[in-house]
Write a protein that binds this DNA or RNA. Structure first.
Lengths: 206, 206
DNA sequence: TAGATTGTTAATCGATTAACAATC
DNA sequence: TAGATTGTTAATCGATTAACAATC
């Protein structure tokens, strides 16, 4: 029970969390494994199997109570608290990220924003003041920042990643197309919709 | 050989494509399975195994020629041509997507952009004129658009998805946190960095 | 009760990995 | 040649699925 989840299980549980959060917002209070399956494209049996490894959370003939399943999954993933992250890059993408509710909904707080451009420093992005990237190290320490989101052009991505890594950040989200060289203990998540699209296209064309 | 790839293989090949494209841009002409592994976190043996299922593309003791491996993978994925997609939503996120080179690098052309806001219609986003969303159906047909990217608020996402689906689009990229109800033959890809972050956090905390 | 849906088993399939001969 | 790296085998592990009894 104290065992670490496999990567696959943790990824799927996170996706169930997203569906439950949205279903709750849409006013639902109960959900079946089949409904979760429709939204996640994970097989309904697999979902029941994933959940039943941790306890009997559902009611036969009825389904799962959304509120209680939400807290069970948050407990399993140990992500109940608030987590602080930093946004690097205050361009259009940075603004879009800062103004999106997508992080806040999952207890993730964008605690700081940075840019290299002196014209941008001191301005606001959402409700957040933009700081000089040279202050990153201190801010990361002061605000207990655990992850960084790179919303910078590909040409600046490595420098920005280096700054985060030097400051002690071990989780980096890369929204540029650049490949990042980081130490082995740093997790890089690269978002590349074009690559996903090529993948989707393959199944569309065949 | 005429068989369809499994979902996993197609996904991994798409990611190799991304690494090769970037490595080429960085001036490299050869790459080893270990180097691809460092950037994708896919095991090097798995990479060699994936590739050798389609032919002997590498040279022992040397590695893979990037140019020839790129074209082999494009051939396997049958994604050599140009593909047209539509952007729905011309806000900050839409602008960020339209101005990013990430799609163009993989032969994907943003052929049209739409918005519901009459003030935005007729303006430009990147080099693209913003069209009224009511013209979506005709444009999708005329320009042979095969996928739609939703860069709209969660509250408008379902309407926008319906418009795309009605127009015949069968691949939808959803950048909102909304859950979309679509017919079973429509592929929805939802990008949710917060969910990925929760997943990353789990392994960070344990 | 009747219908629905969970929890669980058993069987299959694909992914992952270590190891190493082949060969550039 | 010596070193490096591919291509391939064999073994293991996790994911996936169908089926169905349990039970709300």
């Amino acid at each position: 029970m104290g065992d670490r989840l496999t990567v696959g299980v943790a990824a799927r549980l996170s996706r169930y969390l997203q569906v439950l959060t949205q279903a709750k917002k849409m006013g639902k209070s109960r959900i079946s494994s089949q409904e979760i399956s429709d939204y996640t494209n994970v097989n309904a049996t697999q979902i029941r199997r994933d959940l039943s490894a941790f306890g009997k959370f559902g009611k036969r003939g009825v389904g799962y109570d959304i509120d209680s399943l939400l807290s069970e999954i948050r407990r399993i993933l140990r992500t109940q608290g608030q987590h602080n992250i930093a946004l690097v890059g205050a361009g259009r993408l940075g603004e879009a990220i800062a103004s999106s509710p997508i992080f806040a909904e999952h207890g993730i707080n964008i605690a700081a924003a940075f840019d290299v451009d002196p014209d941008k420093v001191g301005r606001r992005i959402g409700s957040l003041a933009i700081s000089d990237i040279r202050s990153l190290s201190g801010v990361v320490r002061d605000k207990n920042i655990i992850a960084g989101v790179l919303a910078v052009p590909a040409a600046s991505a490595q420098d920005a990643a280096d700054a985060l890594v030097d400051a002690g950040v071990r989780i980096v989200f890369n929204y540029s197309e650049a490949l990042l060289d980081v130490p082995p203990d740093v997790q890089v998540h690269t978002s590349n919709p074009a690559v996903e699209l090529l993948h989707a296209l393959y199944f569309h064309l065949t």
